[in-house]
């Protein structure tokens, strides 16, 4: 066991435990807070993969924006501070069965693949992943078109979200 592997195991157990609390917690505010710790664990995983930009974006966009949006939505949609009744529907056992079998299927599929025990090669000398990613995102031979389409999608979705959530009774 190298220190890398120990750190990974701790982070993975923390993330999976928080993820389990997200889907089982009865109080939705607690579920949203557990989501923050899950997202933080995923950010650490990105850092372990040397994807520095993704780790920072994970903290800024997911924890800073999406998780806060969830907490706002939870607080805007409750009559009572406590949630009443069961939090899972009557077919929850079917969902549990399906998710366990999905995991088992993925696990056995991956076991049969020869690339599984591959280890990462070291970066070439002078390679800067963040600079390379930035170049690729704006290069016409790289990914400038998907990047611009994603920004148009984001603007359209946010305008649509404002329109859908707009309350005509309170507007003038």
């Amino acid at each position: 066991m190298t220190p890398d592997q120990i750190v990974f195991l701790i982070v993975a157990l923390f993330t999976l435990g928080s993820g389990f609390m997200v889907v089982t917690s009865g109080n939705l505010v607690h579920a949203a807070l557990w989501l923050i710790s899950t997202l933080f664990g995923v950010a650490v995983t990105f850092a372990l993969l040397n994807a520095n930009f993704l780790a920072v974006v994970q903290v800024v966009v997911y924890i800073g924006a999406i998780a806060i949006l969830f907490i706002f939505a939870v607080m805007l949609t409750r009559k009572d501070i406590r949630d009443q009744g069961p939090q899972v529907n009557k077919n929850w056992w079917f969902g549990a069965l399906l998710s366990v079998s999905t995991f088992a299927g993925l696990y056995f599929l991956l076991q049969g693949w020869e690339g599984m025990s591959k280890t990462a090669s070291a970066f070439p000398s002078g390679f800067d992943a963040v600079a390379e990613l930035g170049n690729e995102l704006i290069s016409p031979t790289g990914y400038v078109l998907p990047f611009e389409v994603a920004s148009v999608l984001l603007v359209a979705a946010l305008v649509g979200a404002v329109y859908v959530a707009f309350n005509p009774r309170s507007g003038k």
């Binding site: 889907v23 939705l28 939090q87 899972v88 079917f94 399906l98 998710s99 999905t102 993925l106 696990y107």
Partner: peptide, 21 residues
């Protein structure tokens, strides 16, 4: 790890009653 996280999320999608959950 990613497969386990995906399965946990799948369980949440299939079994929670609250749309935000």
């Amino acid at each position: 790890f990613a497969a386990a996280l995906f399965s946990i999320g799948l369980f949440g999608v299939l079994s929670r009653r609250n749309a935000i959950a």
